[in-house]
Design a protein around this nucleic acid. Structure first.
Lengths: 261, 261
DNA sequence: TTGACAACATACTCGGTAGTATGTTCCCTA
DNA sequence: TAGGGAACATACTACCGAGTATGTTGTCAA
């Protein structure tokens, strides 16, 4: 049930650990990705140092460079993982055979929820888009970056198609569909820049927020969603992502991972 | 007609050049701010170096450090200038005694247009918000940063009030006004991340784009704007900002400003 | 049991960059 | 017409951070 989805996304990890002990290796890489996502979220790609990531991991550079060739590669891996999370949340909904209006509403909700649940990764995605305009150093990296942007575009294209379908079926007064799609996603993505959990019921809080955003976005399309769509979504299963704040960990004290007294 | 506006924004330049030759000094500082805005736009605060800015200016570090204490100070100055541009565009409209619906429509248009016309500065504003969450190094800078965020909040508050007024007068089905305001601005700000001029009629292109965005945003509020608002705005006078692309200038060749043969 | 390899840690190099210290030029004033 | 200061340029320091080279430990297979 999760095999045919993956569409064209290259599987998450890349480093040459074919066969061997794939499970443990994958776990370690995931931990690195999580730590990196946190650092990139808080400091940005340029300002975050590899040593920062290592400190969060309670490890040293060596561990990271053993799995990733460069800082840029690490960033790209985090980006891929973020996009994979988005696809896993939205693509199944996109492939369902539901009415256009209901479909776009559900897609929007899934997107908004995975965004709130996996904030650090989503921030990296935003940076990746930004990075695209300035230009990543080497030519080889530029190529990789182009790949990532293409994935991003495929993702946006799902929404564009879904929106086009609604505009068509409901005869909505929207003429510029690419722009409408961007505005639509801009509303949903907005929370990346300011959201942080307020009360204890984090999940309920996020669902309520997402619903409001989706309502706004749908109205932006001049579409009135069937209220039924918003019910029964109260307990969607979005996996909880890494959420620590780094300000605590980030005192200069270098981590001493192997303190064998 | 431009004196009573300035509200609470500290005047643009800060360095101790009271009296003396304020005009020439101001010009030079403006040039630095423009160059810095371009660099920060393209590389981000962390990745952009002071030497980069100097290169764009066809000058050296000395000139920049003569006017600004540190890189952070320079960034803040650019931020202030960006906010000032926004206020100059929107505050007069906000202070007009027009009907709520027309007012918010005009404010939105002004905002969208100044955004498109002054893109580099607007990108810096986005970075400033981001920077707020991570924390600027020293305590003194943190204080300054808080000032800037407060200015930003005052700006957003104008929109929140205007939106609240519309919701009230038109009895719109919007209950969470702060969130609605954020979504509203998210739509208008979206173009910062992807817009670049396509055809020669830059101004016309920008107006058409802005109008579409405003339409989307207003529909998001469930508000139907009077079509008349969008006419007669075809030639609003937004001053054209710096728009060069840096990729040309950014070859390592160090600028030789005073090549007196 | 040995040795080969993965998964790290440690210890280094080296380029880039913020900031400083010190010229140099020009203008304006006394 | 000295001279003082503004507005830069030049030359330098000090540090941080990416990447590398090399050691160390555990594990597993033959």
């Amino acid at each position: 049930m999760s095999e045919p989805l993956r569409s064209g996304i290259a599987s998450l990890s890349e480093s040459r650990s074919d066969a061997a002990a794939p499970e443990a290796t994958g776990r370690s890489q995931d931990a690195i990705l999580n730590a990196a996502a946190l650092c990139f979220r808080d400091y940005g790609f340029a300002a975050a140092s590899i040593d920062d990531v290592a400190r969060v991991l309670n490890a040293t550079k060596g561990r990271i460079y053993h799995h990733f060739r460069s800082k840029t590669d690490l960033f790209f891996a985090v980006y891929r993982r973020g996009m994979a999370l988005n696809f896993e949340a939205v693509e199944p909904v996109f492939n369902e055979k539901t009415a256009p209006l209901e479909k776009i509403a559900k897609m929007a909700l899934s997107h908004a929820l995975v965004l709130l649940a996996q904030m650090p990764y989503q921030r990296v995605l935003a940076q990746g888009v930004h990075m695209h305009q300035t230009g990543a150093t080497t030519a080889a990296q530029r190529e990789t970056l182009a790949d990532l942007i293409e994935i991003r575009n495929r993702y946006e294209m799902m929404f564009r198609k879904a929106i086009a379908a609604v505009v068509d079926s409901e005869d909505l007064p929207v003429n510029d569909i690419p722009l409408a799609t961007r505005s639509f996603l801009a509303v949903l993505n907005g929370s990346v820049y300011w959201y942080s959990p307020k009360n204890d019921d984090i999940h309920g809080e996020q669902v309520r927020l997402a619903v409001k955003q989706v309502r706004f976005a749908l109205r932006g399309l001049a579409a009135s969603p069937p209220e039924s769509v918003f019910d029964s979504w109260a307990n969607s299963q979005i996996p909880a992502g890494p959420y620590e704040t780094l300000s605590d960990t980030h005192n200069k004290a270098v981590a001493t991972p192997h303190t064998t007294t």
